[in-house]
Each structure stands twice: as structure tokens, then as C-alpha cells.
Computed example of a mutant assay.
Amino acid sequence: MAHTLSHILSADQCATLALWSVPGLGPKTLEALRAFAGGHLGALASRPVREWAGQAPVSGPVRQRLASGEDLPLLAERTLARCAASGVEVAFSGAPGYPERLVGTPDAPPLLFYKGHVGPPRRRVAMVGSRHPEQGFLPYARDFARQVAEGGVGVVSGAAMGVDRACHWGALDAGGETWAFLGSALDELDPPQARLLPHFLERGGVFFSELPPGVRASRSTFPRRNRLIAGASDAVVVMRAGKDSGALYTAVAGEALGRPVLALPGDVRNEAAVGCNGLIQQGRARACLSVKDVWEFVGARPVLAVPPGTGEGWEVLSAEAKGAYEVLDRVPRTFEEVLAAVRLSPAALASALVELELSGLLIQHPGRLFERI
């Protein structure tokens, strides 16, 4: 949890967290400061800010904020305290909780703030779109996202009203994984996002933000967060986008990162689909005609199981395997968690899980984590 981090932060992490909390200081400036410190930001944390701020390679406003603020260890502690007060955790690049696909991408933040449980590695797709698509499209987007998630693919979006939120709900309908990257700090949610958050946390979803506590959304923060949506994903699907839709920023970010970009084509008379049709016409996106196209472009090979209680495959399962399946869900569980929920011996459960895996009814993730399909 966030409140325990103060006891385990390295000097470099302490400096990174403190500097990241200074308004106007971004990834490029942070790297310039690292070079200024001889390759280790921790060297700055061990010295009073007033000793080095005057020579630091930062802009005038940032230098002024540094010089008039607290020393880095105190600033880091203050940021951690604000995180703890709102139940926010911190993940540094390369550490558990930080999206693995985002590590090493250009302009990636050195850390992320998050709420929720970040699951094991899997294929993930960014699904984005207009806040105001044509009438009747939102139920379609929700169902499309549900089918994507049923194939074991995580759904990444921005929690904005309209298509983004419909895609999140679709993933939740399937009991699948969904991530939301926000344009505000996690303690500055707007009312609709605040209402959505409990559903995310309850069903295994995650809210992410690169913004430290106290930062509200603005016109500049929304385009910036789109690079994170694309960077954390294996492909980008533009579900609906008008001529000037913000969803097109995510497509541009996906292009820049070399992620496959797909777009759902729409009626040429439909202004809400002009952006999608334009991406396809210009050769910047492939036409997405089915959920199978999404699975193909993210490299997923889902094994679609027969629904429990139907079909010959289900009938031939042992009673132990059927019982184990009933207690599994789309949030990965440890062997011990499953064992506690079933009336089986460890050996019988191990055999049942193998049977389910061979039948295509569950996935075993590294670390002996089990997820039903």
C-alpha cells in the first residue's frame, strides 16, 4: 500500500517521486536532472535543494518552485501522505503495478499513481471513441468490448463519457480486466468517474494517472494521457471518432509507438464516423469488422469455452473440475485462494485445475495464478 512505501523507497525513488510532484517538471526534464546528478537522482535527495537548484537544467518557473519548496525527502513524504489519505498507490517504471508495455516507451512517466489490482501480463487493447457518438452506438460498443474481454483480452480506455465508458462497462460485463487512464489526479475525480470507480475496484479494474495528488483535469492533460492508453496496449481500436474527436490523439500515439491501429468503419453520411473512415482511407488504420480482427492484431489466441452446464465438453468433466470452475472468476486467483473456497484436497484441486486447463476453461498465469475463461 502507498503508506508503506516511505519505508522502502530507495534514494533514487524518493528523488523521482519528489521531483515528479513539482508542477511543470516532465519526463525530459527529469532525465536532464538525472544526467546533471551524475546518473543518479538519489544524489539530489541527499543535498538541500538550495545547493543545486540554481545550476539545475530546468526552466525558470520550475527552478523557482524548487528553490522555494521543501527538500526532496520531505516533499516525497508529503506526496506519499496525500496518496495514503485517498487510497492511492505508486508504481515506479519496471516495478509491479506499472504496465509492462509502457516501460521504455518515449515520454513515458517514471511512475504512475493507481487504484485497484494490477493483474498479470496479458494481451490488452485500447478501445477509444467519441463522447457523443450517433444514437444507438453505445450499446453496440459495450457489447463489442464484452466480446473482446471474453477472449481474455484486457480493455484499456480513458473513462470518459460516451464510447470509452461503454467499453469499460463491456469488459466488466464479461468479468474481464479493464484499465482507465485519467486526465486528472486520482484524488480529483469528476463525479461520473467517482461513481464508476467502485465498480472497477469491485471487479478487478484499475484507475491510473501520471498526475500527482491535487492536479485537476485540464485541456492539456487529456491529450497527454492518450499516449499512456496507447502505450499500455498491444493495439489501438478507434470505435467511433468524428473529424475532431479526441480519440484520434490516441490513434496518433499508437502510430508513433508502432502499435497496430484499427478503426470501425461507419456510414459515409455519419459525421460521428468521419474520423474512423478517414484513418482507414489514409491507410493509417486497418478496418475492424469483427472482434476476431481485434484478437488477431493483439496476438491473442482465445480458446472460447462452451458455457458451463452445456455441451459435451462440460458433461465429461469430473465433479471436482466442475466444482473448481464454479469458484473461479475473471480475476486471477492463487491456488491457496481457490483451495479455501472448495471442499477438495490440494492434490484433488491440482488435478481438477489441470483438467480445466486442458479443456480450455481456464488460463494459468505465471506465479500459479488461475483465471476462468
Rank of each mutant, 00 (worst) to 15 (best):
P121V: 08
L112S: 12
L257V: 06
A45R: 00
P191M: 08
G367S: 11
P265F: 11
I280V: 12
A160F: 00
S21E: 08
Y325S: 03
V316F: 12
E312P: 07
A341K: 10
R219L: 14
S351L: 14
E210R: 13
L33G: 06
F113A: 09
A76T: 07
V163F: 01
V22R: 01
P307F: 05
A347W: 12
L25P: 03
Q147E: 15
G69R: 03
T105M: 10
R372K: 14
R101E: 13
G283Y: 09
A84T: 08
C14N: 06
A352H: 01
E357M: 11
S10P: 05
G175S: 02
S93A: 15
R224W: 10
G69Y: 07
L248F: 01
H40E: 14
V261C: 02
G283L: 10
L17Q: 08
P346Y: 14
A91R: 08
A11V: 01
G152R: 03
V338H: 07
D143C: 06
A241H: 00
L339E: 07
A126R: 01
Q64H: 10
W179H: 01
E315D: 11
H3Q: 13
G283E: 12
S93V: 15
L362P: 01
S68G: 07
Q282F: 07
A37I: 04
P198R: 03
K115P: 07
F36C: 04
A235V: 12
A2T: 13
P73A: 04
L75W: 12
S130C: 03
E312R: 13
V128G: 01
F370G: 03
A32P: 00
S318W: 09
G278M: 08
W179A: 02
V238L: 10
L264R: 08
P198D: 10
S21C: 11
H117Q: 15
C167E: 04
S359C: 07
V316E: 13
G152D: 02
R122S: 14
R269M: 10
G116N: 04
H117E: 15
F181C: 05
T310K: 07
A45K: 00
E326P: 00
R146W: 06
W169L: 15
F222E: 04
V261S: 01
P133M: 02
P110V: 14
V354Q: 13
L33C: 09
S59L: 10
S233E: 03
P110W: 14
C83K: 04
G309S: 06
A180V: 05
R330C: 02
A340V: 11
F297P: 00
G119W: 02
P302L: 08
A2L: 12
A348E: 15
A81H: 13
S59V: 08
P332I: 09
R50D: 05
E51V: 11
A348D: 15
A285I: 06
A273K: 02
M161G: 07
S157K: 00
E177T: 11
L344Q: 03
L41W: 07
S86M: 11
V103E: 13
C83P: 05
V306R: 03
E271V: 14
P307V: 10
